[in-house]
Every structure is written in structure tokens, then in C-alpha cells.
Amino acid sequence: MSTRSRLVGAIAAALIWGAAGVPALAAEMKVGVTVGSLGNPYYAVTNKGIADAVARLTPRAAISVASADYDLGKQFGQIENFISFGARIIMLNAVDPVAIAPAVAKARRAGITVVGFDVAAQGADVTVMTDNVKAGAEACQYIVDHLPGGKGKVVILNGPPISAIVDRVAGCRKVLSAHPGIDIVSSDQNASASREGGLAKGTGLLTRFPKIDAIFAINDPTAIGMELAARQLHRDEFFITSVDGSPDVAKALRAPGALIRASAAQDPYGMAAKAYALGVGIVHGRKPPSPVVLIEPTLVTSENAATYVPWKTDPSIIEQEGTSP
């Protein structure tokens, strides 16, 4: 069984258990959702995963979704608002995994179940996220494998210091550091995990370095912005890897001459749906076997992109998997 099939089966089990094994939550239950940035299409998919899980488990629940825009103070305020309007579950994509702890503690003291998704959140009841260390390692192992002789100048195009990004960079560094022929010429540029940031920081890096052999971008929007910077400056001597496996990058991977060559794919829909299902279980006294659930990434490359379907969002997949033997 594939990693995705195991994941979807686990989601299905959680959802069907939630529907049949526990009573329905009270009518008009309130759910608060706060994410790093609604400008990132990744979070549109996580939000759909949450919404579909809500429809399955708590169909009369009211959902409030907010964008923190990677601003810790703003996210604190959003959690305060969720507490004030009586949320029963807060779905938290933390801007800072440690600094958010006081807000998480306050919500839990108010009797609210706090569920982290995509990134860690200190003090949350449970967190579901990609194994980001492995995602960074896979993307950077591709770099090692495709540099002639395993040697060259590599850029790590960084992002906001949320746990997912810190872990990806750590995984990448571990792989690259095992190869003395690889020189990491830059790793401190925060491109804000966005296409615009990738373009701006990428332009600066390409102006600074006359030759680069490979770039690891911490997510797909950053990689796309970096590629745009390269096109504008007529630079094509390097290739790019990233993390997400987004529809835009899946398309780029299939295009002849694309600089983006690989991305460690996530399952934002399945991740968020599973996180909400676990949150419902916690509300009803069912403690998860582990406070952190890690989902394995899958490396998508220009060589295997033809068969890759990015970010599936069909809720019928969950039900079909749940009824299979």
C-alpha cells in the first residue's frame, strides 16, 4: 500500500470512527482556524480539508478562518478572538512554534481543544504535519545526486522561522554537509515563503553570485519566484528543488527547460482533515496515541511528474478508502 493510501485510510478511519463511534458535537459548535498566510495556495487546500472534515463530523459547526500573515501579534489576537466567541476547537498553523505557547495555554485553560497542523505549536493537544526534516533531505539529496561529481555552489533560499521551514533547512543541511565538495554560499535570505519574496531575494542573490549550481527553496512559491528572477536575468546554469508538490510546480516539472526539477510533495488536504478528525476525538475524550503525527513526503521530479496528481481534494476518496477491506 502506498504512503498516500495509508494516510487516506487513516483519515478515513478517524472520520468514520468520529461519525459512528462518538456522538455528534453540539449544534452550532464554533471552530476557529488561523493560518500563516491565506495568500499561499497551500492553505486554501488545508482549509478545504478542514471544511470537508467539519461537514463530515460536525455539519452544523460554524467556522471562522483568519490569516496571520506570518505576524505573531496578529495570530495572538486571532486566538483571543476565537476564545471570546466561544470556539470549541482551534485549528492552528502557528507562526512561531514556541512563542505561540502562551496563547495556546490560554485557549486550553478556556476548555478549547487546540490542534496544530502543518507546523508545530508548543502546548497543542495534537499536531499533524509533514516530516519536514525528511522533505528537506529528499529535496537536497536530489541536488547532490544531480551535481556533477557531487560538487558545486548551492544556495538555500530560506523563509520565516516556523518549524516546518526550520526543519526543512535542517534536513537539507544534514545532506549537503556530508559532501565536502558542496559549498553553501547563502542560507540566510528570508524570502517570506512567497512568490514575491522568491523573486526579490532571488534577484539579489543572482546579482551577488555570478555562478550558482543549485538552489533549494523552502517551498514552491519561493521556487517559482526564484525561477522568475532567473528568467528575467537570463540565468539558467543552475536547477532548483523545493517542498510542496503544488499544482503550479507539478506543471513546471513537466515543462521542457524548467529550472525547477524536484519538489518533496505534501498532502495538505489529507493532513488538515486528519488533524480535525483527531481534534473531534479529543473533544470526546479520545487521546491520540501520539501528540505529533508525521506524514511522509513523496519526492516528485521532472522524471516522474507525468504520473503525479497534486493535492487531491476529493472527499469521496476518504469514504471510499474507509469502506475498503
Rank of each mutant, 00 (worst) to 15 (best):
T3K: 06
G9W: 08
A10I: 14
A14E: 07
L15Y: 01
S37L: 02
G39I: 00
P41Q: 11
Y42K: 10
T46V: 02
G49S: 04
I50V: 15
A53H: 03
V54W: 01
L57N: 10
L57E: 08
T58D: 10
S67Y: 00
D69Y: 00
G77M: 06
I79N: 06
N81Q: 15
N81E: 14
R88F: 13
M91V: 00
M91F: 08
V98E: 08
V98A: 01
I100G: 14
A105K: 15
R108H: 06
A110E: 12
T113S: 08
V114D: 11
V114I: 09
V115E: 06
A120F: 07
Q122N: 09
V126Y: 13
T130S: 13
N132K: 12
A135I: 01
E138F: 08
A139G: 04
Q141S: 08
Y142G: 12
L147T: 05
G149P: 05
V154I: 01
I165Y: 00
V166T: 13
R168T: 00
V169E: 13
K174Y: 01
H179C: 11
P180I: 02
P180A: 08
I182L: 07
D183R: 12
Q189T: 01
R195K: 09
G198T: 13
G202Y: 02
R208A: 15
K211N: 05
K211W: 06
I212H: 08
I212V: 13
N219D: 04
N219C: 12
D220N: 12
T222N: 04
A223W: 01
I224Y: 08
R231K: 06
R231A: 14
R231P: 07
R231I: 01
R235I: 15
S242F: 02
P247T: 06
D248A: 13
D248L: 04
K251F: 10
L259S: 05
A262I: 05
A273K: 06
L278P: 03
V280F: 13
G281P: 02
L294H: 09
I295Q: 15
E296D: 06
T313V: 14
S316E: 06
I317D: 14
E321M: 08
